[in-house]
Lab assay of single mutants.
Amino acid sequence: AGLEKQLAIELKVKQGAENMIQTYSNGSTKDRKLLLTAQQMLQDSKTKIDIIRMQLRRALQ
């Protein structure tokens, strides 16, 4: 149950990062740093999601 909860949280983080990227990508240059931060968050989240999914698969075997 813990892994499913972690996965749900990470999927929400990923969605939030995608929303932030959309918001900041057509903003001013001061938003550039926020855009880069959001892109890093998205990448980190995708990595965590992959790891959690692997752990889930392993647990189900």
Results as ranks from 00 to 15, higher is better:
1 A>C: 11
1 A>E: 15
1 A>Q: 15
1 A>L: 00
1 A>D: 12
1 A>N: 09
2 G>F: 10
2 G>Y: 10
2 G>L: 07
3 L>G: 10
3 L>N: 12
3 L>V: 06
3 L>A: 07
3 L>Q: 14
3 L>D: 15
3 L>R: 14
3 L>P: 01
3 L>E: 14
4 E>Y: 08
4 E>L: 10
4 E>P: 05
4 E>N: 09
4 E>S: 05
5 K>A: 06
5 K>P: 02
5 K>S: 08
5 K>V: 03
5 K>D: 08
6 Q>M: 06
6 Q>A: 13
6 Q>I: 11
6 Q>L: 12
7 L>V: 10
7 L>N: 11
7 L>H: 01
7 L>W: 00
7 L>K: 13
8 A>I: 07
8 A>N: 07
8 A>Y: 00
8 A>P: 05
9 I>W: 03
9 I>V: 12
9 I>C: 05
9 I>Q: 13
9 I>H: 14
9 I>A: 13
10 E>T: 04
10 E>P: 07
10 E>G: 03
10 E>K: 10
10 E>R: 06
10 E>L: 07
11 L>T: 13
11 L>G: 14
11 L>C: 06
12 K>E: 11
12 K>C: 10
12 K>Y: 03
12 K>D: 05
13 V>R: 15
13 V>D: 02
13 V>H: 12
13 V>P: 04
13 V>S: 08
14 K>Q: 05
14 K>G: 04
14 K>I: 03
15 Q>P: 15
15 Q>W: 00
16 G>H: 13
16 G>E: 14
16 G>Y: 14
16 G>I: 07
16 G>N: 14
17 A>K: 12
17 A>Y: 08
17 A>W: 13
17 A>L: 15
17 A>E: 11
17 A>I: 12
18 E>Y: 05
18 E>V: 11
18 E>F: 03
18 E>I: 05
19 N>V: 10
19 N>H: 09
19 N>P: 06
19 N>T: 07
19 N>E: 13
19 N>S: 09
19 N>K: 13
20 M>H: 10
20 M>G: 04
20 M>V: 05
20 M>A: 09
21 I>C: 09
21 I>M: 07
21 I>R: 13
21 I>W: 11
21 I>V: 11
22 Q>N: 09
22 Q>D: 11
22 Q>E: 12
22 Q>H: 07
22 Q>F: 04
22 Q>Y: 04
22 Q>L: 04
22 Q>S: 12
22 Q>R: 12
23 T>R: 14
23 T>S: 03
24 Y>T: 13
24 Y>W: 01
24 Y>M: 10
25 S>G: 10
25 S>Y: 02
25 S>T: 11
25 S>L: 06
25 S>E: 10
25 S>M: 06
26 N>P: 04
26 N>C: 07
26 N>Q: 07
26 N>S: 11
26 N>R: 11
27 G>Q: 07
27 G>K: 13
27 G>I: 08
27 G>W: 02
27 G>P: 08
27 G>N: 10
27 G>S: 12
28 S>H: 10
28 S>M: 05
28 S>N: 10
28 S>D: 03
28 S>E: 05
28 S>Q: 11
29 T>V: 05
29 T>N: 08
29 T>M: 09
30 K>I: 07
30 K>A: 04
31 D>V: 15
31 D>S: 15
31 D>N: 14
31 D>C: 15
31 D>G: 15
32 R>W: 03
32 R>Y: 05
32 R>E: 08
32 R>D: 06
33 K>E: 04
33 K>C: 08
33 K>D: 01
33 K>I: 00
34 L>K: 12
34 L>P: 03
34 L>M: 12
34 L>I: 06
35 L>C: 01
35 L>G: 01
35 L>M: 06
36 L>M: 09
36 L>A: 14
37 T>A: 12
37 T>M: 12
37 T>R: 15
37 T>F: 13
37 T>P: 02
37 T>D: 07
38 A>S: 01
38 A>N: 01
38 A>D: 00
38 A>V: 10
38 A>I: 15
39 Q>G: 01
39 Q>R: 15
39 Q>W: 12
39 Q>E: 02
40 Q>W: 00
40 Q>Y: 00
40 Q>G: 03
40 Q>S: 04
40 Q>L: 01
40 Q>F: 00
41 M>H: 06
41 M>G: 00
41 M>F: 11
41 M>A: 08
42 L>V: 06
42 L>A: 01
42 L>Q: 00
43 Q>A: 12
43 Q>L: 05
43 Q>H: 10
43 Q>K: 14
44 D>W: 15
44 D>V: 12
44 D>C: 12
44 D>A: 15
44 D>S: 15
44 D>N: 13
45 S>D: 00
45 S>V: 15
45 S>I: 15
46 K>D: 01
46 K>Q: 07
46 K>Y: 02
46 K>P: 00
47 T>V: 07
47 T>C: 06
47 T>D: 10
47 T>Q: 07
47 T>K: 13
47 T>G: 12
47 T>Y: 05
48 K>A: 02
48 K>N: 06
48 K>T: 02
48 K>V: 04
49 I>T: 00
49 I>M: 01
49 I>K: 03
50 D>T: 02
50 D>P: 00
50 D>L: 01
50 D>H: 14
51 I>M: 12
51 I>R: 15
51 I>Q: 12
51 I>G: 15
51 I>Y: 10
52 I>M: 10
52 I>S: 02
52 I>D: 02
52 I>C: 08
52 I>Y: 00
53 R>C: 07
53 R>N: 04
53 R>K: 14
54 M>Q: 14
54 M>Y: 05
54 M>G: 14
54 M>R: 14
55 Q>H: 08
55 Q>R: 14
55 Q>Y: 12
55 Q>A: 08
56 L>G: 09
56 L>Q: 07
56 L>C: 12
56 L>V: 09
56 L>F: 09
56 L>S: 03
57 R>Q: 10
57 R>D: 02
57 R>C: 01
57 R>H: 11
57 R>A: 09
58 R>D: 07
58 R>H: 05
58 R>G: 11
58 R>F: 06
58 R>V: 04
58 R>L: 03
58 R>K: 12
58 R>A: 06
59 A>P: 06
59 A>L: 11
59 A>S: 11
59 A>G: 11
59 A>V: 11
60 L>N: 14
60 L>G: 13
60 L>Q: 13
60 L>I: 08
61 Q>C: 14
61 Q>T: 07
